[in-house]
Computed example of a mutant assay.
Amino acid sequence: MYLSVFCTVPDQKTAQRIAQTLVHEGLAACVNLLPGITSVYRWEGEVQENSELLLLIKTQQARYNALEARIKELHPYQVPEIIAHKIEAGSKDYLDWIAESTR
């Protein structure tokens, strides 16, 4: 099974550091860095609004626990957003590449 994992980060430097590490360590096949998002959320009883980037991470289910743990080690937030979605269908060639890249 394959996953797309969403993770927001505060800045470009953090995004690049996490993306490079996950791909280098074989925890992700690819990480897209999507700039220009605004997040509105409740934290410690207050409504917050911040500019962030969204990481869109492609991996295998079997690598998820290690990927989540590594993101938590690298992430500056106390409670980082880490949400996984099953990839229901996709190009066989692309899914095979994810598998090969995350062995």
Rank of each mutant, 00 (worst) to 15 (best):
Y94R: 09
S51A: 13
E88N: 11
E81Q: 07
H75R: 02
T59K: 04
I18F: 08
E81M: 06
Q12E: 15
P76G: 02
G90I: 13
T14W: 08
K13M: 07
L54G: 00
P10F: 14
G26K: 14
R63N: 09
E25F: 14
R42I: 14
L34R: 06
R63Y: 11
V31M: 05
K13D: 09
H75W: 09
V5P: 02
T38H: 13
L33D: 05
P80L: 06
E68W: 00
R103C: 12
R70H: 05
E49Y: 10
A89T: 15
S51D: 06
S91E: 01
G45F: 14
L33G: 00
Q60Y: 09
V79R: 05
E100W: 08
Q60C: 14
P35W: 13
Y41N: 03
G90Y: 04
G36Q: 09
A19E: 01
S91F: 12
I57S: 00
M1G: 04
W97T: 04
L3M: 12
V23W: 02
P35T: 10
Q61E: 08
E88Y: 14
E52P: 08
E25K: 11
T21P: 00
E68M: 03
E25Q: 07
E73P: 06
A66D: 09
T102E: 12
Q78S: 06
R70P: 01
L95M: 08
N32A: 00
L54H: 02
L27R: 02
K86F: 09
N50Q: 15
L67H: 00
W43D: 08
M1R: 13
T59W: 10
A89H: 10
D11W: 12
N32T: 03
R103V: 15
V40E: 00
N50W: 11
V31H: 03
Q20I: 14
V31Y: 04
K58E: 08
S4W: 11
Y64W: 12
V9F: 08
K58L: 15
A69L: 09
G26N: 02
S91A: 03
Q12H: 07
F6W: 13
Q16I: 15
A84M: 03
P10H: 04
A15R: 01
T8Y: 12
Q78H: 11
R17N: 12
E81F: 11
A89E: 08
L34A: 07
A15Q: 01
Y41I: 14
S51T: 14
P76D: 02
L34D: 01
V23Y: 02
A28R: 00
C7V: 11
L74R: 11
V23N: 02
K86G: 10
G90S: 05
D96G: 06
A28M: 02
S101P: 04
N32C: 05
E81G: 02
P35G: 07
L53H: 11
Y41R: 03
K86M: 11
L22A: 02
T14E: 05
P10Y: 10
N50P: 06
V47K: 03
T14A: 06
A99N: 11
V23S: 02
L67W: 11
R103E: 14
Q78P: 01
L22D: 01
D93G: 04
S39W: 07
H75S: 06
N65S: 12
G36E: 05
V40N: 02
E25G: 00
A62Q: 09
Y64M: 08
S51P: 05
K72F: 15
